[in-house]
């Protein structure tokens, strides 16, 4: 974990979520953000979220101090049209996982605070319906890990 505890606390206060047991319920695999052109206003983050608990968990929001706003989206194809739909809630079954990958679910990130380059670490926060948050850093990369 590269994020310092004071930064976590600041994020916790900022996002009004509990830090209790944050590491136990979810584990995050390969969180990454595709490096984007210098003038891109919208970026996407991808990851795999595992639910380590015996109860279902729902992600209800996502935030990042490095972006103006963030939301969960899915690219869906209907009648030859790829369109994005907003996901207000993503359920993860007990000991199950949910995958966010190019062309499918993604975390849409609007208005980056600066130009992010491959190798940069960007803090993200997943908010669960039980009031607990999960804090992690996504790595900026040119290609899928």
């Amino acid at each position: 974990m590269t994020t310092s505890s004071s930064r976590l606390l600041a994020l916790g206060l900022l996002t009004l979520c509990s830090l209790a047991a944050r590491a136990d319920i979810l584990s995050i695999e390969n969180p990454w953000i595709r490096e984007a052109p210098p003038n891109a206003r919208v970026l996407a983050a991808y990851l795999v979220i595992h639910n380590n608990s015996d109860a279902p968990v729902a992600i209800t929001d996502v935030t990042s101090p490095a972006f103006g706003s963030a939301m969960m989206h899915a690219t869906v194809e209907e009648n030859g049209l790829s369109r994005m739909v907003h996901l207000g809630r993503v359920e993860i079954p007990p000991h199950g996982e949910v995958r966010f990958a190019p062309g499918g679910r993604h975390i849409m990130l609007f208005d980056p605070e600066k130009r992010f380059r491959a190798g940069d670490k960007v803090p993200l926060v997943l908010h669960m319906d039980n009031g607990i948050c999960n804090f992690f850093d996504a790595t900026v990369r040119k290609t899928q890990p």
Binding site: R34, A36, P37, N39, A40, R41, V42, L43, A44, H73, T75, S82, M84, P102, G103, H106, M108, L109, K142, T143
Partner: peptide, 17 residues
């Protein structure tokens, strides 16, 4: 379009490859 976060950057990066 350039405000597209997922499909377009992914496809352009694939075309570059």
């Amino acid at each position: 379009y350039t405000h597209c976060p997922d499909v377009c950057p992914t496809t352009l990066s694939e075309l570059a490859r």
